[in-house]
Structure formats: C-alpha cells, structure tokens
C-alpha cells in the first residue's frame, strides 16, 4: 500500500508509561546485579587462589556495613529476578496428559521446589567447605 502515512515515534521513556513495562524493565535491570555479582565471585576465587592470608584480608573487607548492604541489595535483586522468572515458566513449558494441559500451578510449583532443593544443596556444600 502506498501513499502518505503517519508514523508515530516511540518515546524514549516508553517503559515509564505503563506499570507492566516498568516492572519488565526492573526484571531486566536485576540481571545487571546478578552479572555484577558473578564478576565479584570470580574476583573472590582469584583471592582464594592467592593463599590464606590475602584471602582472609579480602574476606575481612567484606564485613563492612557498605559491603553487607550491597550483598542484601544483590540478594533482593536475585530473588525478584528468580521469582518473576519462575512465575513465567508455565508459558515456556507445555506438558500434556492426553487432552489436558498440566496446570500452570503444577509447573510453577515444581520449578520452585527444584530451585529450593538446588539452593539447599549449594548452601550445604558452602557450609561444609567453610567448616573445613
């Protein structure tokens, strides 16, 4: 189709114009916190490889109020990201029992249970290593 037509520009603040868009952007932003913390863990592994004394100094530095605050902030971001993501899993995973689709709640529940189990296993390993 030819002829004159009007194209409406998308405004740069489009993500502030609707609550659902803003919540989506918050979910995307939480990825930055998780990426940042992954880099922090790599740095931590580096210091762990430098011997006992440098690693102890590094860990002592993490006990500052600012460090604790940052950790809590990353924890909140990771929880928001994980929970909102697991809530979306029924859209991604379609399972059928004959003509009946497995309910959204069952898929969400299974994912949350697996997440908690995996987290418990990781926490168990970390505590076991920490105790030597």
């Amino acid at each position: 189709m030819t002829g004159k037509q009007y194209v409406r520009p998308v405004q740069s603040n489009w993500w502030l114009q609707k609550r659902s868009y803003t919540l989506f952007m918050v979910r995307e932003l939480t990825s930055a916190f998780i990426a940042g913390y992954s880099i922090f863990l790599i740095v931590m592994v580096y210091w762990a490889s430098q011997g006992n004394e440098p690693f102890t100094r590094f860990c002592d530095g993490l006990k500052s109020p600012l460090s604790i605050l940052l950790h809590l902030l990353v924890l909140a971001a990771a929880l928001y990201h994980s929970i909102t993501w697991f809530n979306l899993t029924p859209k991604i995973m379609a399972f059928w029992r004959g003509e009946e689709k497995v309910s959204d709640g069952a898929i969400q529940g299974a994912n949350f249970v697996l997440w908690l189990l995996a987290s418990a296993v990781v926490a168990g390993i970390v505590f076991a290593v920490a105790r030597g």
Binding site: S20, Y21, F24, L88, P90, K91, I92, A94
Partner: peptide
C-alpha cells in the same frame, strides 16, 4: 518476553508462550 502481547490478547492465544 515482556509478556504484554498475551495480556492484551482478547482470545487468550498467549503469543508470548
């Protein structure tokens, strides 16, 4: 995966899914 397509769909097609 903004998911808005599925929210506004009048026929519950769920294109995001």
């Amino acid at each position: 995966f903004v998911g808005e397509c599925s929210r506004v769909c009048p026929k519950h097609v769920d294109p995001a899914g």
